[in-house]
Amino acid sequence: MAEQRTPGSLIVSFYGAYGRDVDGGRVPVAALIRLLAEVGVDAPAVRSAVSRLKRRGFLAAAGSGRGGAYALTADARQTLDDGDRRIYDRPAVKDDGEWTLAVFTVPESERNKRHLLRSRLGRLGFGQAAPGVWIAPAHVGEEARHTLARLELNAYVELFRGTHEGFTPTAAAVARWWDLEGIAALHRQFLEGQEPVLTRLADADPRQAFRDYLLAVDAWRQLPYADPGLPPSLLPDDWPGGVAAEVFGRLHRELRDRGREFVVEQLTA
């Protein structure tokens, strides 16, 4: 998974970080253009991305006025709310040997549901153990149940909870079920881009805090899904995930509220 930084991704990151909480979640397009200009996105790209997000059912028109305004749809708000636990408040990893299994069967006449199921399970952090059998740490189970029901995919899936009893050693099986090397590379990519920001935290005014925080959220928000929080005993000794989470946590604590000051200023300009 490459670093995000597309106009559409940055808009999603903006609504997740600020847009759903400020001014009732209503963001004028003119203000969105000013805000996204701070991270290098020009006005035509913002308008084009807003149109795509509207077609996808992520944004909806919210009131009139020059240039219009947009707010999250109910489904989009639920999606962002669901993501908060992973992105901002990830639970401590339990090394208890418990796993969630998702077993699904989809009729050939509904192949599109099969593709959607695979895609959604992958985005939730499941690894594929066998055809139609996907696995994740036990703590992912609650979110999986809620998400699959919301997407009306629960009729095709059964969820189980249990332990791995063999025959492959669990660490070796985990290395087969997930692309650990690829996930580690994503963590290192995040650290390469975001660790330097730590050196200028003390000097960041609201405008710079907004820039740095939005880019940090955009770089981070997919990582807790690519990496579902596997137990440390099953990961390589030099696993960078813990350091990456600590860096994002510090950026979140020290930049988010300062950046909000700039957002409010732009929304009321």
Rank of each mutant, 00 (worst) to 15 (best):
Q222M: 10
A60H: 11
Y88I: 08
E246W: 00
P240Y: 07
S48K: 09
R86W: 09
L201F: 03
L101C: 02
I33L: 10
P232F: 06
V12W: 05
P131T: 11
L124M: 10
E246L: 00
R211M: 10
I87K: 08
V133T: 14
R145A: 07
Y15L: 07
E261I: 15
P232W: 02
G193D: 08
A244I: 06
R52W: 07
H164D: 02
V247G: 02
G182H: 01
D23S: 13
A17S: 10
A202H: 11
V243Y: 12
H115N: 13
G40Q: 06
D89K: 12
A172F: 08
V264K: 01
V39A: 07
R200S: 15
A244P: 01
T168Y: 08
R90T: 02
W178S: 00
D75P: 00
W220N: 02
A129Q: 08
S48L: 14
T170P: 05
A130H: 14
E143P: 01
P224Y: 06
F262S: 08
A31Q: 10
T79I: 13
P236R: 04
W178Q: 01
D82K: 02
A173Q: 15
V50R: 10
A62I: 09
S51Y: 06
D218H: 04
G16A: 09
L121E: 01
S48C: 09
L121G: 01
D82R: 12
D218W: 04
A216V: 05
E98D: 08
A149Q: 14
T147L: 08
G8P: 07
W178H: 05
E110D: 10
D23Q: 13
L215I: 13
I135Y: 06
V41D: 05
H187T: 04
V264Q: 06
P231A: 14
W99S: 02
S233L: 07
A202R: 15
Q128F: 04
L223K: 07
P240G: 00
G127A: 00
R260F: 02
F210M: 11
Q78S: 11
V39L: 05
G162Q: 11
A69T: 06
D203A: 15
G229W: 09
D23G: 09
D203P: 02
E265V: 07
T268K: 11
P91T: 11
V12I: 14
S51M: 12
F248Q: 04
H252K: 15
A61E: 15
A184P: 05
D89R: 15
L32P: 03
